[in-house]
Structure formats: C-alpha cells, structure tokens
C-alpha cells in the first residue's frame, strides 16, 4: 500500500525537475534527449490517470465486435488483428474502423493530446 505522492504526482515531479532545473544546466547536445525524457514523464502522468478507463472501454468495444468475452484485452487485440489480417469477411468494416479510431483517440489523449483534432488527410 503506497503512501503519497501518487504515481501521477511523482511523474509530475520528475518532469518538473527535468524541465525547470536540468534543462538549463546541461550542454546543448543533451537538451533534446532531456526534453524527450520530460515529455515521456508527462505522457506517463496522463496515462496513469486515463489508462484504466480507456482499457475497459477498449475491451468492451472489441468484445462486442468479436462476440467474445471481454476479460483479456491482449487476447482480444490479437484476435482482432488475426481476423483483419485473414481478411475475415464476417467483420463489419465500418465497425472495426470506428473501434480502432476510438482506441487511437484514447492512446493519443496520453501520448499527444490534441493530435486527433485534425480529422482530415
């Protein structure tokens, strides 16, 4: 049983350290890497908050699509992947597309907020 800070709060502290103190104190050649590391901390911070609900929603979508039980998300993903690759004609193409768009939106909410605002080509 963990005490505070929570995972999110710790990731926030790591990002803050990298952004506010480390970045200004290191040679230019390292700055890009440290910026990337700080951004990864921010990604994990968002993911910690968002992933549990996103995973439940994804499992629900895939279970409905594949008419399977909704417990094991990796197995559901693997099965969808297998059926797409096999060209399974029983899959509803539009429904598959919509389910994958919803998952990509959830992934981007952690990894790159705002990226899904552009729905064009």
């Amino acid at each position: 049983m963990k005490y505070r800070p929570t995972d999110e709060e710790l990731l926030d502290a790591i990002a803050e350290l990298l952004e506010n103190q480390v970045l200004g104190a290191i040679p230019p050649a390292l700055q890009h890497q440290v910026r990337v590391a700080a951004n990864l901390s921010r990604i994990l911070q968002r993911q910690t908050a968002l992933e549990p609900a996103a995973s439940r929603a994804e499992a629900g979508r895939l279970a409905a699509l594949l008419e399977m039980g909704g417990e094991d998300l990796p197995a559901l993903r693997a099965e969808l992947d297998r059926r797409i690759r096999a060209g399974d004609g029983a899959l509803d193409e539009a429904a598959v597309w919509a389910a994958l768009v919803a998952t990509a939106r959830d992934d981007l909410a952690s990894a790159k907020p705002g990226y899904d605002a552009w729905e064009g080509e």
Partner: peptide, 21 residues
C-alpha cells in the same frame, strides 16, 4: 536511446493518420 524509446509512443500518431486516410 531515449529518443528511439520515445518513438514507440509516437506509433498512435501514425495509426490516427492512417485511419483518417
């Protein structure tokens, strides 16, 4: 490399672009 590692978290950007196309 931390940059190569971070590339794994950029895959959803390409998935999004792909799905829109």
């Amino acid at each position: 490399s931390i940059i190569m590692a971070a590339s794994g978290r950029r895959v959803p950007e390409m998935e999004w672009d792909l799905l829109m196309l």
